[in-house]
Nucleic acid binder design. Structure first.
Lengths: 198, 198
DNA sequence: TTGATTACATACACCTGTGTATGTATTGTT
DNA sequence: AACAATACATACACAGGTGTATGTAATCAA
């Protein structure tokens, strides 16, 4: 049984520090990438000492997992997935955020760094489920032909995100053309889905 | 005036060492990523000392540029770009090579590491010209509508390459579906192009 | 109020990578 | 043959990051 204090000051302070460490990790990954996101750098940004980092995250991979989860929470898919076009528009808004770079950096880091690989890979796999076509039944996704279009659009979103991440967050010269093409494909599939339901 | 020796032994040896350093860099980037691709690691793989590395590449960024150029040479676009479908098939063969991971790692590194950023960015921009739609006039690429499809397919190739790089070089469960969709789109555009030429 | 726990900060030893200076053997020049 | 240049290897000093042990102030339970 846990006694409840009125203020619970320590707990609030602890959560705040923890949160700042996670946010500092995200910011560092966005600005400097994985290789320069060190414990020292994270603590400098968070305004705490390495003792605090070690207290909250004795395992370095746990911090990265928390950072990834936090980013996945920020980049949430539109709950209204009533059409593929909506899904595309919502996904686009997500991948053009600077935070999406964290996802890419950690995808690669998980592959490159065996120390964090396994644990991080599991977190990635879990979160990826949110993007499974099963989440988009309402948009007509489910049967093979629609799945193919869905995954294709999904890959395009990732490519746009990578393009942003490798260009300082700025859109490439042709990003807009690609996005319009994606919308065309989505609307095409949407109208097919409607037809099938008639 | 430069005297020509019969054997030119030193020159051959020098080229061989230089080549091994570049190849070691590529291999390390594929296996361990940018953050763990250190001078020490590269020399260990190449079987030389850091003295040799420093002799050939006093500037670290020069080595990375050479590695990137070497990879771009390996991943050469099909010279026969008579149809978009051919371009897609050729591009696919390239991005599923392990070497494509080097491209991605260096794209990100160029963004993250100011020490090498500018110089590497220029090399990236130069090489990217080979993938410009201007290179594919024969496939009907040039006017706006075709360009949009072209860039979209191009982005999809990159996304597939990223998928491979973040999965240990193995294809994802849906990669094939995406590739088939790409072929469909390419053939569709190809037939339009033929129509326009009739 | 006293002891225990939490939430950090501080400090030290260690390791790895880097810059740079210098040594040296082979090759090329005259 | 003597000198110079190339192509490395060796060695040292230094910087930055990490693991870990210990110190300490605030909070909490009794």
């Amino acid at each position: 049984m846990k006694a409840q204090t009125l203020t619970n000051l320590n707990d609030a302070r602890s959560q705040a520090t923890r949160s700042r460490l996670v946010q500092a990790t995200i910011d560092s990954l966005i600005e400097h990438g994985y290789s320069k996101t060190t414990g020292v750098e994270i603590c400098r940004r968070a305004g705490v000492t390495r003792g605090a980092l070690n207290h909250h995250f004795p395992d370095y991979s746990a911090l990265l997992i928390d950072a990834l989860r936090e980013v996945y929470t920020t980049l949430k898919v539109e709950p209204d997935a009533s059409s593929l076009e909506r899904v595309v528009r919502s996904g686009y808004k997500n991948v053009v955020q600077p935070e999406f770079k964290v996802v890419i950096e950690l995808w690669l880091a998980s592959q490159n760094d065996p120390a964090i690989g396994d644990k991080l890979a599991r977190a990635i796999a879990e979160s990826a489920y949110a993007f499974s076509p099963k989440s988009f039944r309402r948009a007509g996704i489910g049967e093979p032909a629609a799945n193919a279009i869905y995954y294709t659009l999904f890959e395009l979103l990732i490519a746009i995100g990578l393009g942003r991440a490798t260009s300082g967050g700025k859109a490439s010269a042709h990003e807009h053309m690609v996005f319009e093409t994606m919308l065309d494909l989505a609307r095409q599939q949407d109208s097919l889905g409607v037809k099938n339901n008639e």
